[in-house]
Design a protein around this nucleic acid. Structure first.
Lengths: 355, 355
DNA sequence: TTTACATTGTAAAACGTTTTTCATAGCGTT
DNA sequence: AACGCTATGAAAAACGTTTTACAATGTAAA
């Protein structure tokens, strides 16, 4: 006696495969076979099953199914922040990949906290996801989490380390920033302000490396200031304010992450400087608004869709049983010069300290 | 004989509660009790269990657990688009609510397709989520999906209908746009361009209603143009271009959704108009960049966090067994006037047709 | 010392599927 | 008609957990 009082069956979802089988006058196994296409649907039994399914509004319990099959078509994704457009696009693209392959993405964010990150990973592993994408936050210890047990295939995205024990896909941060820096120097800039976020994040560190490499190649006079901005526009604004108050105005500003670009644009205008005329401005990471300013703001564009697709195929390779040592793949950035990649106004001489 | 060759046990996650029980010399039930806090952990048995858990790196199978408990602590969320900052913030805030309550959010996007939406809903119901948040896309038929079976508590977010069969939380779209329109008229604007997205989306329709209400209250001369822009910045730009080519320049532009605001800002500058001086500009929905333009751009700000919290508590109420008819709650928007909420340049006379 | 009762932990059932096993029937061949 | 083979679908096992039922033990009261 499974359900003593049928009238108190409160929800349609309480309909199980046995109820369907009973109504169709067949065994649960046959119902399962019909529904999974292992049996023709156009004979008496198949039709009876489909009729019963519709009549009872049967909805298979994915949890039970998943438990029995011992394999899920779910891929976990842990990103630092949904509000970062880069990650938002990454989620969107990975969802598209998943849809094409019959998988589904379960996305969660670590809110830039290593603790939350490891909790989320643990949780996803508990759900026996088939694979895992991770964009590690600063101070992440993901190594210990699920490197130890290589059981679930994983791919690190965006914030990769060069020699890692896990597969990864990132962009060629150092090459991109080095090229931009060299171009700025070439244009005549001698006082460049480089705004970065936090060099505990691997990709930011790489971007800084690229900048330093370009600076070292130059043997003439060159002054590069490095300014640590916080994570938000507000913190970056404050950092810029403080820097501008105490230092000569740079002829070029190079922002190594997206919120700083907005802060730089804001602060320069507030101080009467126009980007593209009085000061060159370049940002790492594109945003919709950048291209619509006058003049449009130059930016290093990360090909998010390419990154997502590469990461997806790497993960699929591992899920499919692909062996071999961990690889780190690099995708090239595109540089959109736009209107703020300009020479210094006075031809390369340092601008005087602004009053 | 459950596992004939222990050395071929390929992954740590294949450790089950029985393995732990065996190693600890207790029954599986006891292990479960220790792990779920139904039994003290600081006696011989408790310690033995914890030791075995650690030694075997046991990770409970959430799927099996969920199946047996027949209740999950998972809340589904279907939004149209991760790249829309409004929804990105919504996800972030709901995640925070979930974390505080011991739930977890599984977020998926419908990519503005009613088909995908209903597929995602079906899928989430298959996973027996404890509740569901939905921001319906245009042409959504969610009613038939899971209204029929009221088994899983649901809350519609953002794009609510006034008299719905499901709970909902939205903003007072009509009131907000009506107030702004009246303010614009008050300032002397007589030729106003209203850019909207798609009135098949309920909240856009409400915003249009508010605009129309304000226009009807005014009995003097007033010209309001309604411009259907597409979903993207590019489509909005094209629509604006076409409109500007064929019509007199408005003294104010009111954008009813966020991508249009960027397009309007872009196009006006491109045509030599400066927002806040030559033309007033107001957007519905705030974005980070708006406040950092010079002058900063006025916007109706939706209190996303408040919306999320209200929606969360509504859903929790239903999950907790709360009965009663469906309610639709409204949250008030805040209007940030900023620098582009200005009177028309020539005091309210229509600007001539620009050549 | 017996009885009643609470405590403890094991054994077994249950959750809803999928898969394996097995019995039966149908068919063709000799 | 006897035999072997295939096809079919019902029955049962399995997935890994939680919960229920129950037996055994200990404790307190009579």
């Amino acid at each position: 006696m499974r359900r003593e009082n049928p009238s108190q069956r409160r929800s349609a979802s309480a309909v199980s495969i046995r109820d369907v089988a009973q109504r169709a006058g067949v065994s649960p196994g046959s119902v399962s076979n019909v529904l999974n296409g292992k049996r023709r649907r156009d004979d008496p039994i198949g039709r009876a099953v489909l009729e019963a399914v519709k009549a009872l509004d049967y909805r298979p319990n994915a949890i039970a199914s998943s438990l029995r099959r011992a394999e899920s078509r779910v891929i976990g994704l842990v990103i630092p922040d949904f509000q970062n457009p880069f990650f938002a696009e990454l989620v969107a693209e990975l969802e598209r990949c998943a849809e094409e392959t019959g998988y589904r993405i379960v996305a969660t964010s670590s809110r830039e906290s290593a603790d939350v990150e490891s909790r989320e990973i643990r949780e996803l592993l508990g759900w026996r996801v088939a694979g895992l994408f991770l964009a590690p936050t600063a101070g992440s210890t993901y190594g210990r989490e699920h490197l130890a047990d290589q059981d679930v295939p994983s791919v690190i995205v965006d914030r990769v380390f060069e020699k890692d024990l896990i597969d990864g896909v990132g962009v060629d941060n150092a090459e991109a920033t080095e090229a931009v820096m060299r171009e700025l120097i070439e244009l005549g800039h001698r006082r460049i302000l480089v705004a970065y976020f936090d060099d505990a994040v691997s990709n930011v560190a790489e971007r800084l490396d690229g900048v330093r490499r370009a600076a070292m190649r130059r043997d003439g006079p060159l002054h590069v200031d490095y300014l640590a901005c916080g994570p938000t526009v507000e913190s970056a604004l404050a950092a810029f304010e403080k820097h501008f108050d105490a230092n000569p105005v740079p002829t070029a500003i190079f922002c190594l992450f997206n919120t700083a670009t907005l802060a730089a644009y804001s602060i320069t205008r507030k101080r009467g400087l126009e980007a593209g005329r009085d000061v060159a401005l370049v940002g790492f990471d594109d945003s919709a608004w950048l291209a619509h300013m006058t003049p449009p703001i130059a930016a290093i564009v990360q090909p998010v869709q390419v990154i997502a697709r590469r990461a997806w195929s790497m993960l699929m390779g591992r899920i499919g049983g692909g062996l071999g040592p961990a690889r780190t793949e690099r995708v090239s950035c595109r540089f959109e010069r736009r209107g703020t990649m300009t020479p210094p106004r006075n031809g390369g001489m340092e601008a005087g300290r602004r009053k």
